[in-house]
């Protein structure tokens, strides 16, 4: 569908703003640009996919479509968490590919001023460079801004790499 395009809102006094969907992951707060989020659904039956990379939690049936679901906790190396009602699946779409990501809970839609966002330090992002698009400071607390379309393409290339590795081992 649509390319990643951030949604800026002009405000004469505060400058530009960004609208993000904020959610919790462990003790941290993350945010995704609202234009990347297609839908937020409750946790539902996720069928595991053997041989998929370990951050792939499984697949779900979303109105007749089969959609892969990623566990961001695993992706970031956080410890495992028991399923609870607070958890949600955030559905994102990029280049016609849909994925869902499991988050601990969804807070709300926030408007954050563009000038409160800083580029991430490379020591924090490490290999994950690309899909952390910035760090926002709101009243002394930090929100890590994610670019879900990068996560999709990153996950794709990681899957392909693992598969190629696996077949190389077989040969």
């Amino acid at each position: 569908m649509s390319e990643t395009r951030y949604f800026y809102e002009e405000d004469s006094e505060k400058g530009t703003e960004r609208q993000i969907v904020a959610f919790a992951l462990g003790s941290e707060t993350y945010g995704v640009d609202i234009s990347q989020v297609r839908e937020i659904i409750p946790i539902q039956k996720i069928v595991p996919v053997p041989r998929a990379p370990d951050f792939v939690e499984g697949i779900i049936n979303l109105r007749g479509k089969v959609i892969p679901v990623l566990d961001l906790r695993k992706h970031f190396g956080f410890e495992k968490k028991e399923r609870d009602d607070e958890q949600k699946i955030v559905l994102a779409e990029s280049h016609g590919e849909s994925i869902g990501v499991i988050v601990d809970s969804v807070y709300s839609v926030l408007r954050i001023p563009e000038d409160s966002i800083e580029p991430p330090a490379s020591v924090i992002t490490g290999d994950d460079v690309g899909y952390i698009s910035g760090i926002a400071k709101i009243n002394d607390s930090l929100i890590v801004l994610l670019d879900l379309s990068q996560i999709i393409s990153d996950a794709e290339s990681r899957t392909l790499k693992e598969i190629d590795l696996a077949s190389a081992v077989v040969k």
């Binding site: 590919e97 994925i99 794709e156 899957t159």
Partner: peptide, 26 residues
């Protein structure tokens, strides 16, 4: 059913389907 590019090339898995009870299956 198509599973998307991310899971398209998994070895030994041809795709997915949806069972009569609505659950997906490989």
């Amino acid at each position: 059913k198509d599973m998307g590019k991310m899971l398209a090339r998994l070895k030994g898995i041809a795709g997915a389907t949806i069972l009569p009870d609505g659950d997906p299956a490989l």
